[in-house]
Every structure is written in C-alpha cells, then in structure tokens.
Design a protein around this nucleic acid. Structure first.
Lengths: 90, 90
DNA sequence: GTGCGCCAATACCGTTTGGGTATGGCGCCC
DNA sequence: GGGCGCCATACCCAAACGGTATTGGCGCAC
C-alpha cells in the first residue's frame, strides 16, 4: 500500500466516480482504476461496488475512508511541521 | 514522500548506521543512502548528521521520528482492521 | 606517516512500476 | 436501436527503484 493509493482511494470515494476522481487527481482514468484494483487485491477486500452510474463504497471502504484521511492528514502535518523546524534553524 | 521512505528513515534512525539498516531492510546500502537523501531533499531539511562512524539524528530528524512511527503504526493497524472486516463477511 | 577498516556517496545498469492512449463491453435513456 | 456515460482491458513508453562495482573520507594501529 502506498500513500498515492490512499489519495486515489479518498478521491474516488468522495467523487463516487472514477472519471471525475481521475480528473481531480490530474491523472487519466485507466491508471486510477488499476491502482484501486491493486489496492483492493493487496488488502484482500473489495472497497467499491461498481455500478453503471459510478461506484459506491462497500463496508470495507466505509471503514477505510476515515482511517485513510487520518493517515494523509498526519503526513501533511508532518511535512509542515518539518518545514517549521528548518525555518527556525535558518 | 512515500511509506517506504518512512520505513527506511526509522530503520536508519534506530540503527544509527546505514549499512546495518540496509541489512535489516533487506536492501543494499546505496539505494538506502539515496532514498534518505531524496527524503531530505524533498522535505528541504537535513535529517541526519553523517560521521565516519555512522549517522546521528539532527533536530528535524528527532521531530520526524515519532511522527513517522505513528503514521506507520496507523497504516499497519489499518491493514489489519480491513482484514477483519473481510473475515467478518466471509 | 602508511596501511587497513569502516563508513557514506557516486556511477552505471537492469528491472519494475506507473501513467498515457486507444479500445472494448455494458447498461441506460431518448 | 443509436448515442452516451461508466468502468475495464491491452499495449506502449517514461520514470522510479534496487543491485553491483567503485570511490573518497576519516580514524586507528603499528
């Protein structure tokens, strides 16, 4: 699992639609589909229900969403925190 | 920044020595050195002081270490949590 | 002060990963 | 049934990553 995959997952969950999520992430749709499938296969869980109108979160996806957001928020905070440390040293 | 880089950083911080950390991570020393340098450059902060006997954490590294551990722990917990969800559904 | 040992850093190469384009298959709506 | 929107697949190319070989710096023993 990678941080990019978590970003992708959150975007798809929020958009409910792979195409829109791909546009938001500035990548094209096929690699996004692949990354989501890859994430599902390495977790051993289906995260989304595919429908002709888009995707919907399955229970495992509902569990993952808030945790993924927290990890991503921690990482973002961590980057900012370090920037402050370096600023203080200059 | 990637989760692998955080794993590498923690290993180097704990071993105080790139060669030993590389062995523990089951990779060779040069790629590890490169990844640490890459992490430092994208954070814009030096994390380690290089000495002829190994490496020591600089202040930014001291800040990063507990936060990196937390992110990695969250990710590990997240993987286990999802495995439980799928087990419950089988 | 010369040689040896341990360390991180660099150079170069092969493989793997990841994203892009093109296309297919499927359901829905008019 | 023709057109449209969706996700999935096939194929290709570029970037990222790890491995081996090697260099350079520094301390230590003698």
């Amino acid at each position: 699992m990678s941080l990019d995959q978590l970003h992708y997952f959150v975007a798809v969950a929020e958009e409910g639609n792979m195409g829109r999520a791909a546009r938001r992430l500035h990548i094209s749709q096929p690699p996004l589909t692949r990354q989501i499938r890859h994430l599902e296969s390495e977790l051993g869980v289906e995260l989304f229900l595919r429908t002709p109108r888009g995707v919907r979160l399955l229970p495992a996806g509902e569990v993952l969403l808030p945790r993924a957001r927290r990890v991503l928020a921690d990482v973002a905070a961590l980057e900012h925190g370090l920037r402050d440390v370096s600023d203080r040293r200059e």
